[in-house]
Simulated assay, not measured.
Amino acid sequence: MIPTPDVSHLTKKDFEHVYEPAEDTFILLDALEQDAESLRLSLPRVCLEIGSGSGCVSSFVGSILGPSSALYVATDINPHACHCTKLTGRQNKTPIEPLNASLATPLMQRLKHAVDILIFNPPYVPTYDDEADGAQQGADIQGAWAGGKDGMQVTDVLLDQVENLLSPIGRFYLVAVKQNDVPAIRRRLLDTHGLQSEIVVQRRAGGEHLFVVRFSR
């Protein structure tokens, strides 16, 4: 078993502004651990996490791959999250390069068809659209969960970027809940971009039915 990354350096005050690892984080770690051997064998060179929060997930990928020449890049709209991601990477010996940005927008040309591991645990909780808009503009912890109509407002934007980012061997890991309509997400990426998909892990956590879906060419 691969240990969960150490986030003991982050404080209660940090977690007032940055999403603390929770069940949706842990199901994503479980999915990545399940694929650990094949991820290592694929020799990934570029790993990109969208919405890195505490940096726990990117650090976990670093633990899977071990000493490697992989580039670890993370984006988050929350500047405090970028700071925490950098610290968590350092704490867990993973050299993560955080970028304060929305989704992968500033990286679309530089990383075109170059990302081998793409990860997104989005704000998936259904809310009013204006609540999601305000959360994104506020760039604080609310942006980690407020997802707008069907919880898909932010995810919809990223889904249009996925094919442009994935390398020929690329894998995209997406966390979703039942209300997001997982079958529709899978059909959309298959029909529009020809991406195959598989539900890697699913489980109930409180009132949520969580999924991790893996997409590839």
Rank of each mutant, 00 (worst) to 15 (best):
Ser68Met: 06
Ala70Asn: 12
Cys82Ile: 02
Glu97Val: 14
Lys86Asn: 05
Pro95Ile: 04
Pro79Thr: 03
Ser102Met: 01
Ile96Gly: 01
Pro95Ala: 12
Glu97Asp: 12
Lys93Ile: 12
Lys86Asp: 07
Ser63His: 15
Ile64Gln: 11
Gly53Trp: 00
Gly89Ile: 03
Ser52Ala: 15
Lys93Asp: 14
Ala74Val: 08
Ala81Trp: 00
Gly62Glu: 06
Ile50Pro: 01
Lys86Val: 00
Cys56Ser: 13
Phe60Ile: 11
Gln91Tyr: 07
Thr85Val: 07
Glu97His: 12
Leu43Tyr: 13
Ile96Arg: 00
Glu49Phe: 08
Cys56His: 09
Asn100Ala: 11
Thr85Phe: 02
Ile77Phe: 00
Leu43Asp: 15
Leu71Ser: 14
Gly66Thr: 06
Thr85Glu: 03
Tyr72Thr: 04
Phe60Tyr: 15
Ser52Phe: 02
Lys93Ala: 15
Thr88Ser: 13
Cys84Trp: 00
Thr85Cys: 13
Arg45Lys: 15
Ser68Gln: 07
Val57Asp: 01
Ser58His: 04
Gln91Arg: 15
Pro98Trp: 02
Ser54Gly: 05
Val46Met: 10
Ala74Phe: 01
Pro44Met: 12
Arg45Thr: 12
Ser69Arg: 14
Ala70Thr: 13
Val61Arg: 11
Pro44His: 09
Leu65Lys: 10
Gln91Phe: 09
Gly55Cys: 09
Val61Ile: 15
Glu49Val: 11
Gly66His: 10
Ser102Pro: 00
Lys93Glu: 14
Pro44Asn: 12
Gly51Asp: 04
Val61His: 10
Thr88Gly: 04
Gln91Gly: 01
Phe60Gly: 07
Ile77Lys: 02
Asn92Ile: 05
Ala101His: 00
Leu103His: 00
Thr94Pro: 10
Gly62Ala: 09
Ala81Met: 04
Arg90Trp: 12
Leu65Glu: 11
Glu49Asn: 07
Pro79Asn: 04
Gly89Gln: 03
Ser68Phe: 06
Leu48Asp: 04
Ile50Phe: 06
